[in-house]
Design a protein around this nucleic acid. Structure first.
Lengths: 200, 200
DNA sequence: CCACTTGTTGTACGATTGTCCAACAAGCAA
DNA sequence: TTGCTTGTTGGACAATCGTACAACAAGTGG
């Protein structure tokens, strides 16, 4: 009879991903205070030492977790856009609706954002990453706004405005879900889109 | 000759305040990661044990620090409103301008917000405090909007919208000050106010 | 079957955390 | 001055943190 292996080797990329997903789960479950190398290792079913083997410290793991979670958010929104068809305004509406519904707007995701934000000011590399992901988010929104006929001269300000509005509504929706509903947030965002696309 | 006292007693309220202000400074200087009971005590020129004498744990100190800093923010905005005179729209403009200028919009303040946000989901008492402070902020904004002639039926959504827009712009201004300027943020917010006050 | 590489383990390490508490002393009342 | 209250000290305490590293073993190429 054969002895069972004490552990199984994983393909490096798969192992990295499983650690990132474990970090996201731990952040969602216990918040920033409940997140540590050990807790993540336990959740991933792995020895704590392995975290250091794949990431340059826990801050780097948090940064990669943020990037991964935001990529999943982007996928969720892309799926909503695809479902909305080809009408530019319908796609814009789908964008905001998806932004305020689970799994995008949820208290669980917030912990990952907060953990990442807390590193932005002290870590230049993470500040750069934040700038890139913010720019990408805004660029996508500007493309949708442009497709709806927003004048190019106003595209920059429109993109900043709608991005900020969505972020502010999303944040409050995560922090105190009872202050207003996801439907209200969607209605507010669509009203703002009307105002911007109509032009003054 | 008299021996110098080893320490001086402070009036309880003054001592509490000095600890809160020290916590705000430490959060501003070192971020969430650089903040601890000991660091705050050193900054306040006090023994670490004294923190426990005035606050039920460091989370309570963070919560009170947030309340204090937001009160200072409110004072700064109130001063801007007073300077703006009595014209309702001028007061509204002053509100947004003050929100995007130091000391309200600054990376230093952000750390206090982040530390507080990270406690909202796990501490019911802090969640309640957040709800109250958010409601107060929005109520003040709704009063200013109402004075500008915004129809009462739309006041709730208008208040949520402008609050979210200001929050989103403020957050991004703190996180990456080079993405857009405070003047741009002010112009964007004033445009949104125009759209809301004109009615659609 | 035997190296050899390297993913993985488990622990030890020093530093730091928040909290607690006995001892001290400052300042007021008598 | 004498006594008393209590703000204050400073260190002890257990727990936990992130990281480093030597030992082990899984899987691959020979």
């Amino acid at each position: 009879m054969s002895t069972k292996p004490a552990f199984k080797r994983a393909e490096p990329d798969a192992r990295r991903l499983s650690l990132i997903e474990a970090a996201a789960r731990v952040l969602a479950r216990g918040g920033v205070a409940g997140t540590s190398v050990r807790a993540i290792a336990v959740d991933a079913g792995v020895s704590p030492g392995l975290v250091g083997h794949y990431f340059d410290g826990i801050d780097a793991l948090v940064a990669e977790t943020y990037a991964h979670v935001e990529a999943r958010v982007a996928e969720t929104i892309d799926a909503a856009l695809a479902r909305a068809g080809t009408d530019p305004r319908a796609r814009l509406n789908a964008f905001v609706t998806a932004s305020f519904a689970p799994p995008v707007a949820s208290g669980e995701l917030l912990a990952t954002w907060i953990a990442f934000w807390s590193l932005v000011r002290s870590r230049p590399a993470i500040a750069r990453q934040h700038d890139e992901q913010y720019a990408a988010f805004r660029a996508r929104l500007e493309a949708l706004l442009g497709a709806c006929g927003a004048p190019p001269a106003r595209l920059r300000h429109a993109g900043i405005a709608i991005t900020a509005l969505i972020d502010g509504l999303w944040l409050e929706l995560c922090l105190s879900p009872q202050a207003f509903s996801a439907d209200e947030a969607g209605a507010i965002a669509r009203t703002a889109l009307d105002a911007i696309l109509t032009g003054q």
